[in-house]
Nucleic acid binder design. Structure first.
Lengths: 136, 136
DNA sequence: ATCATTGCAAACACTTTGCATACGC
DNA sequence: GCGTATGCAAAGTGTTTGCAATGAT
């Protein structure tokens, strides 16, 4: 946990207990949780935790560029600590969101049609391989 | 307007006056309006129009596959009648959303990592060419 | 002692639901 | 006349804001 603390400090974020726990939770692999997921999970161990703090914290993380907001779905925002360029696949059946490694030179382009690009999101939707198995 | 009527009927949608007007408004080029934009514009000419009707109508259009929901931004849903595969660029300065014609073979692939893809969205963000001009 | 963070409660914004009215065939 | 579409009001959701209490140095 010590290295996470240093990471936050490096990014200009005072590493309070709540912030550390929220970042640690986000940073556990390909997870992309929603605010509710974070709250429900962490509130078990931090009973005083409030959703306001989670919103504050995620907005701070976003502002400082250490998380990305995923808007695959109109009604659910997910958060990702993996800042490298990659795509996301969401399964319409089970709701799982997968990281997809893409190799699209085009995506890394700095401009398109004269517009300057500074953020890219490739979202795919369908049925994931696990759900495909079950319906087979 | 007659051909729009026939189009809706073909897609299994009863072409009421409100539905026609909403679809016609959506279908005016690269526009991608939000519910509010549709409402504000059409309410001028259809004073009794309610937002509920717009929500009902857009959900119906979505269900019948004649519009796509764009979720470039967490807090704003936009609607698009262009069902062909293309990307969207949103300008952080002026808020304008542009259609981008892309040629990425990968994007048309039917599967990735064993998952079956049935919907694709490529969202780009940055500063559009018009806003770049002004700050120059 | 001071300044920043937390978290409650209230406010806000967006979308859906329930239902009575109005419309079109 | 009947079945559907409309639109008001209310409910439901997700997020932000105001502010007092708390915590860290």
């Amino acid at each position: 946990m010590e290295y996470l603390k240093e990471y936050l400090i490096n990014e200009g974020i005072h590493p309070s207990y709540q912030r550390l726990r929220i970042f640690e939770y986000l940073d556990r692999g390909e997870f992309h949780p929603t605010v509710d997921m974070i709250y429900n999970e962490l509130a078990k161990e931090i009973p005083t935790l409030s959703k306001t703090t989670i919103y504050n914290t995620l907005n701070l993380f976003k502002k400082n560029g250490i998380v990305t907001r995923l808007t695959i779905e109109a009604n659910e925002v997910r958060y990702d600590t993996n800042m490298q360029l990659h795509a996301h696949f969401k399964c319409d059946d089970c709701g799982m969101v997968y990281d997809i490694q893409v190799e699209i030179p085009y995506l890394t382009s700095l401009t398109v049609d004269g517009h300057r690009i500074c953020e890219r999101h490739l979202y795919l939707k369908g049925t994931c391989k696990n759900c495909l198995k079950e319906t087979r």
